[in-house]
Design a protein around this nucleic acid. Sequence first.
DNA 1: ACACCAATCGTTTTT
DNA 2: CGATTGGTGT
Length: 754
Amino acid sequence: MESAILQGLNPQQKKAVQTVDLPLLVIAGPGSGKTKVITHRIAYLIYEKNISPFEILGLTFTNKAASEMNERISGLLDNSVAGVTISTFHSFCAMVLRRESEKFGLKQNFTIYDDQDQLSLVKKLVKQLDFDVDNVTPRSLLSQISKAKSKMVGWSTYQENAGNYIQEFTAKIYEEYEASLNLSSALDFDDLLLKTYHLFKDYPEVVSKYQDRFKYVMIDEFQDTNITQYAISKQLSLASGNLAVVGDPNQSIYSWRNADIHNILSFHDDFPTATVVNLDQNYRSTQTILETAQNLISPNTEKFDQKLWTDNSKGQPIVIGEGYNEKEESEMIISEINNLVSKGEYSLGDIAIMYRVNSQSRALEEKCIKYGIKYQIVGSLKFYQRLEIKDLIAFLRLINNPDDDVSLLRVINVPPRGIGQKTLSILSSCAVDNKSSISNVLDQIFSGESTIEIKDLGLTKAAIKNLFNFREMIADFKGYVSKRSLPELIEIIFEQSGYKNHIMNESENFQERNENIRELINTAGYFSKENTNDSLSAFLESVSLVGDTDNLSYEGQKLTLITLHQSKGLEFPVVFISGLEDGMLPHIRSIESENPSELEEERRLCYVGVTRAKEKLYLLRSFRRGFRGESSLPSRFLADITRSQVVSWNFSEEKVTQSNNYVDYQLNQDEYFDEGPNYDIPDIPEYKDSEPVDEPVEFNQFKVGDKVAHKIFGDGIIIGCKALDQDQELQVAFKDGIGIKKLLGSFAKLEEIN
DNA sequence: ACACCAATCGTTTTT
DNA sequence: CGATTGGTGT
């Protein structure tokens, strides 16, 4: 009699669930029941193998995935066997580090610096070192540092290998950056992983404690792990040999955050005894969508050889549409959604619009408002990134960890209290000289037993007084920590710091900002109720690591607007992907990059989007995009979609001819007429040109968008136009692989054609 | 020290 | 086109 846990699983899924006591690699194609396998495997371990839930550790990449898995497990298991640890890498590491901090001289109340904090620290260091070079921005420095850290390259090694002036400077910043974090008792996201790795490496008794506790380690979205995360996974599972990893190389889309696709691609080389399971049956999408996805991904070189299949029906063809510009593209999308919904075919909750960059949501939003369509934008303006929230959190951090200089500098003069740049630069350099934090400098100055001579610093009387008051204020706040609840504490800070008055007088959107603060206070209230450890430090950690809770609400029928990156792991009956243009998807940076793997990643990103769709897929692009109305070429990815599976969606005669020929030149002509559509062509809605589109700007003779013929190059289209004195410089995209040429209007003898 | 205005710049994805 | 920086005047 087969275990109930295995019922309803296909053979591969069963194999994955039943493989215990061996390294396991599960290649989980999109829609192949990955989460089902993970949750059933956990149930199998507990019920069939009598393994204690406490010995099971599941590591995920995002909070969303962690909480979803937790829910699925508790649905599958009864609550009496709760105790399985499901956590993100980062919060798991933070937990370990808090617990073990005293072992290696890390203060238990360490602060976690997010991206913004890191950046402001780097900016400060760049200023201090007085270095200014073009193309070396604080952002690029930070990204170099983070890249090094996620490969476990320390600053001294980085320095030794520096091959040029810029790298040497980067190394110097890296060194200072690390020193600052250290002084501030702060860890960045990379440190959470890195310090855990070093802790495990340097303290065998610590790592064996965790190895002993977690005998069964399972990692989800393994294609998104970086070198350090992989190293930690190995450390944890070294004793037991039970490392199970699940992922899909084709959905590796986070290399910019230093995820390394080779972790999954060469897992089997690392663990030759590993069982490899290939989940290749797709339960999600129609055949047409699945085939489109496969055609899309197949040009990639870095991939696992996997041929997906499905029992699902052929379904409807893919709809490829083109709008004249961003406005019109949005109009098409939203009016089509309006149609689908009013015909009763789908509800808003069934539909998602996906895009490459967040800024694309704006045009869509406007049309939603116009049509009165309810929508939700996933994770655009993050709650904890808002100014007023960051400020109040900075107060809390400073109270929790006085050495946190980034937070101190953030709030020391917010609201303005007469502590200006001059004063701060004196304090900063004094802190550098004394190798201490700024709080420490202030303590020295005001404690009387100072080794620092106040007179020598050159601070004004007013500044000294203001600094004294600030220090007193923070000390007062600290006094409340043990006496008041978390929400009360925030309330007190909000009012007594003068922040409330400040935003009341300052900003016209006081209402909104005040509501945000209320929400923060509410969140703190929930946190206190739900967590046994409701210390300030624990709250701040959850704020940094958990971030926005339940961004995506499934209650209420709303259209979902989401970036392609964030769409991973989700599915919708109807998916629109907007902006399929070269420069947008693939993004311009990947096209210009000398590293071809970046282009492969863009392709995977598109693949992720396509495979979210269950029934209907629309691929949209704009003929002109951007604020300068530059013309964009169709995405090169469109050329890899079989034409027989596509219906084109156009909406006005003139524009059809204009754009369609153009698309043809990009798309694979051979396949175009091979076989006619095998499908009933769905009702493509009449597009009503209800809103006039932007008039193209007139130039001397030609304008962007004009179709032209050239004696030698043949037919082309104007994609760029620069007015010169008595003439114009034209950028023309020609058909038949000739490509883009720059021409002088008077010389080129172009003829306008229709 | 601070507020306001102008100019510039640089355009991705986020635990 | 938007946000951030820089300079000015109070």
